[in-house]
């Protein structure tokens, strides 16, 4: 490679054991592998700001780190489910994106969202759904049902992966059995537990997926995120995405600024920057989710514009809902069911 450059940056790195420079910097704390490097380069060049990206792998880790503070993060990208917690605990700065220049580009649909009414704190990053990815060569039936997970047909038994997201799995199971999100109906919860315990032996694994596991036929079906499913289909057209008609979660990841942010102004610039349609399209081009900014479609690749993974078909549009973090008592019940399931 480039030995001198490498050695030089190695030295620079050792030198950087000292405190980080605080001027012209923006520190983004985002989900892993979720940030388009082209978007960052463009932002850096536009504003002459050096951006660092640091990954987290769960809302709870991000929350724990932000609560303790001291890590120099400016921007954080929590999911809709946990946004109310971040706001209630006073971790986020009220940057008023609703008064920013590019706010006019925001899809009105995403302005008065339950987790940040009127958008006083956050700007949409990407949104998507959790549904079914299934191999049509193995399974010819209707993909739009969570029966694929909970009462799997013979041909899928032993080939199903379930994401180990406790809340998503329980939400789907509760809706499948006719309940409401965060239910405390004990009779129903008992049925949920029994259904999950009965279904588990028919799953092959409970893991976060990657494309290889589908293309290499480790899995024929999975509980999966819409963008992940789209990326699979683009590599391997045998796979389709289904919206469970019994109910499925919609989620949105949101760009917010931490109260403890060392570089507040740069963080505001970033919030405004990503509400520009062309920049929002860059976000979507990478992770393959919709972004909530009007006009960004014009800058997207054709395979994104009509993708059924992104444009929810009308007949399933009202089957999905934004899920919220359940109350602590409910989380305790869920954790018990989850432990029972995996013991």
């Amino acid at each position: 490679m480039r030995p001198y450059l490498t050695a030089a940056s190695g030295l620079a790195l050792i030198a950087s054991i000292g405190p980080a420079q605080a001027e012209g910097v923006l520190n983004i704390f985002n989900w892993g592998d979720y940030t388009n490097p082209d978007l960052i380069t463009k932002f850096e060049e536009t504003y002459d700001i050096k951006v660092t990206i640091t990954d987290f792998d769960s809302n709870d880790t991000a929350l724990a780190k932000a609560r303790q503070g001291g890590n120099d993060f400016d921007i954080v990208v929590p999911t809709s489910t946990s946004m109310p917690i971040w706001i209630a605990e006073g971790l986020l700065l009220e940057t008023r994106p609703d008064q920013m220049e590019n706010f006019r580009n925001m899809d009105p649909r995403w302005v008065d969202v339950p987790f940040d009414p009127g958008r006083h704190y956050s700007v949409p990053w990407q949104w998507g759904t959790t549904g079914v990815t299934v191999n049509t060569e193995v399974y010819a039936g209707d993909p739009n049902t969570s029966a694929i997970f909970f009462d799997p047909p013979e041909e899928l038994v032993g080939k199903i992966n379930i994401v180990p997201e406790m809340n998503d799995v329980l939400y789907m199971a509760i809706r499948y059995l006719g309940g409401e999100a965060c239910t405390t109906d004990m009779e129903l919860l008992r049925k949920v537990r029994d259904k999950l315990v009965e279904a588990r032996p028919k799953w092959v694994s409970m893991d976060y997926t990657n494309i290889d596991r589908f293309t290499a036929d480790d899995y024929a079906a999975a509980m999966n995120w819409s963008g992940g499913s789209l990326r699979i289909r683009l590599v391997d057209p045998r796979f389709v995405y289904g919206y469970p008609k019994e109910g499925y979660p919609i989620w949105m990841d949101n760009v917010a600024v931490l109260k403890s942010a060392p570089n507040v102004e740069n963080a505001r610039l970033f919030q405004n920057f990503i509400m520009d349609p062309e920049n929002a399209a860059l976000i979507s081009a990478y992770a393959r989710y919709a972004n909530g900014i009007m006009g960004s479609e014009a800058f997207m690749a054709d395979d994104m514009k009509t993708a059924p993974e992104i444009v929810i078909p009308a007949e399933f549009a009202d089957k999905g809902e934004f899920t919220e973090a359940c109350a602590p008592e409910v989380t305790a019940l869920y954790t018990k069911i989850w432990t029972d399931l995996l013991k």
Binding site: T61, A64, P164, M166, S205, T331, W338, T339, K343
Partner: peptide
């Protein structure tokens, strides 16, 4: 495949999603 919890996962669950 993560279908069975190990001690490490159980403890991680409590600090993570189990809260």
């Amino acid at each position: 495949g993560g279908k069975n919890l190990m001690l490490g996962n159980l403890i991680e669950l409590q600090f993570g999603q189990g809260r």
